[in-house]
Design a protein around this nucleic acid. Structure first.
Lengths: 346, 346
DNA sequence: GCAGGAATTGAAAGCGTTGTCATCACGAGT
DNA sequence: ACTCGTGATGACAACGCTTTCAATTCCTGC
């Protein structure tokens, strides 16, 4: 009884294979008595449709590709990012009866365009989810677009054509974080910018600016430093900021790694967090709750985003278009131990 | 020119489709002039074999399933484990031209057996890699075995039938770590056991015992405490050990999380690491190099193990058996900052 | 120059579905 | 009763490849 085929079922149920196919695919126009006969035959034979045959006949692969920046390319891989991404995508795929194919790749690689083209032509996924920061790399996006495969991007920084995407409102929530810091009494709130390649860096910075204004604070170039998203760059930036005569009482970094760097430097300089300095990050990576003091940050609903992205791409596959092609998933600030009231005296 | 098929290539090259098939599959007995004709036709048409058709005709799915414990089921997910696992498996799959299908699942789930059976019957992967700690759960292993799909387990604790596996020699390297600590002058080396479900916990403990003996130290029940692999349990164990009148000068924990807990507690108690207390862990997770002081630990070559596992399972698929069905991947101790010479006075 | 065997090639039959279209049965409308 | 329309069902041709086995070609040795 290795594997029953559709014709075995048809024979047992006394109908044609087409009718079995109709039942299996939940197509209409099958008398309920017939449906029952077929269903019991399916149960009796433990029949499972053969995916390969189905794919061949229907010209679909039933595969969704999830493409993301390879975390193992880095010294200290931020694997939580990928896991969350996979989790959401897997949940959606399971629900919709698709298979998920993962494809980590390195965007520094010069041949990444060709690599992706090859991959897509060989595997022929029905749809593709492209995660940040790859969703920001034009040659990556273009290579995928050129294959004609439905594509949904996650957190693409810049807008690009009418390509469907799923993102968070970095601007609004960064402003919220800034206002939160201001509400704690901080007047000198510094900002560490991130690597221009990653995420919606610009939006975070603009949110910071807006938050200052909304809190009646003046923007000062003195309080803004560049970083590149690494812990090390956070340390460098912190050293610069904290060695000023009138140092900031709060530092808001565009990602958690840089915020962790800030905390490390403050510790070395003997500056107490949060008593003398409040530190806030962005992304809520696992590290955020592992360091001491635990980091106040902005959560990044990655799983929710990838789940929505999969739903969107499936909608595109099935209907040929996407109703909401610019989904915004809400994010919020997560208050932990690294932020507190501004110190009394400066 | 949507997609060229094998007959398009055959027509252009002036041969039969069977010959094209031979060239594509690198079969022998094709005249090199013929091969060249076919190859240039393939290039001209940008032909890619259709996987679905190929799978249907050959009764293979070209899929390897990687099944592992779902990290997002935990509070603080140890995602590095999964990423490393995926990395090795992906590398091997890419090389052998297989697709990798990932399937995280929760072993606490009572229906996990049925879930896996369903998965395998529907997707029909050609082979399966089962990672620890799932590789230790009898009902999981049995469910997969029952489907008849080739299976290779990673780090199964207990032996089980002649099932092929890939593992590290936890016993030997744990003994090595213990000897290393002894060589630093430590006489009272404590051990924190791990959760009995995870990994080859017994082997680590036995390695510790052997290491003591090899160093001429006496085993003492006083120095062994139970843990459950969590940071919290490491803290609890550390409190117990460090509040003794003659406290240990070194603590070797069966995993890194517990070792991190030890360091945290030592910090709170004002015990300097490594000056007054050496701490060693096991697994070399990302956290190990992020905490301060960076943790001396035992590396776990997860990527190498999953890569070997995939090669083994493919061997099984192709030849029907596996020559080396018990691969041992070497692991070694990684000395960082958390261990040092034993303090002079006790 | 020819038998014999190995190397090379091809024709045709699947593989297990879905898609297309024809057919059939059954009521409603007249 | 008779036609029409609609819902229900089936026959059969794809889908693009591998497999099987027969046919052809090419050598080799005598």
């Amino acid at each position: 009884m290795s594997t029953a085929t559709i014709s075995d079922v048809a024979k047992l149920a006394g109908v044609s294979i087409k009718t079995v196919s109709r039942v299996v695919n939940r197509e209409p126009n099958v008398r309920s008595s017939t449906r029952e006969k077929v269903e019991s035959a399916i149960a009796a034979l433990n029949y499972r449709p053969n995916k390969a045959a189905r794919n061949l006949a229907s010209h679909h692969s039933n595969l969704i590709g999830l493409i993301y920046d390879d975390p193992s390319a880095y010294e200290v891989p931020s694997s939580g990012y990928v896991i969350a991404l996979q989790q959401g995508a897997l949940a959606a795929c399971r629900e919709a009866n698709y298979e998920l194919l993962i494809h980590p790749c390195r965007f520094q690689d010069r041949h990444i365009g060709k690599e992706l083209t090859e991959l897509i032509e060989q595997v022929r996924p029905d749809g593709i989810i492209l995660a940040a920061p790859l969703s920001n790399i034009p040659r990556v996006v273009k290579a995928i677009e050129a294959t004609g495969t439905p594509l949904v991007r996650i957190s693409p920084g810049k807008k690009n054509g009418g390509l469907p995407k799923v993102a968070t409102d970095d601007f609004t929530v960064s402003a919220e974080m800034t206002r939160y810091l201001a509400s704690l009494g901080h007047r000198r709130i510094a900002f560490i910018k991130g690597n221009a390649h990653h995420r919606a860096v610009g939006n975070r910075f603009r949110g910071y600016c807006a938050g200052l204004e909304q809190s009646g604070l003046r923007y000062s170039e003195q309080l803004v430093v560049d970083g590149d998203n690494s812990i090390g760059s956070g340390e460098t930036a912190a050293k610069k900021l904290l060695s000023r005569k009138r140092r900031p009482t709060a530092i808001f970094a565009a990602n958690d790694d840089m915020a962790a760097g800030v905390i490390r430097v403050a510790d070395r300089m003997g500056i107490k967090v949060p008593a003398e300095l409040s530190v806030a990050g962005c992304d809520d990576i696992a590290l955020a709750q592992q360091i001491f003091p635990a980091l106040t940050t902005i959560n990044q609903p990655l799983a929710a985003m990838s789940e929505r992205a999969v739903y969107s791409v499936i909608e595109k596959i099935r209907t040929g278009s996407i109703e909401h092609d610019n989904v915004i998933v809400p994010s919020s600030i997560v208050v932990r131990e690294s932020t507190g009231p501004a110190p009394r005296r400066t």
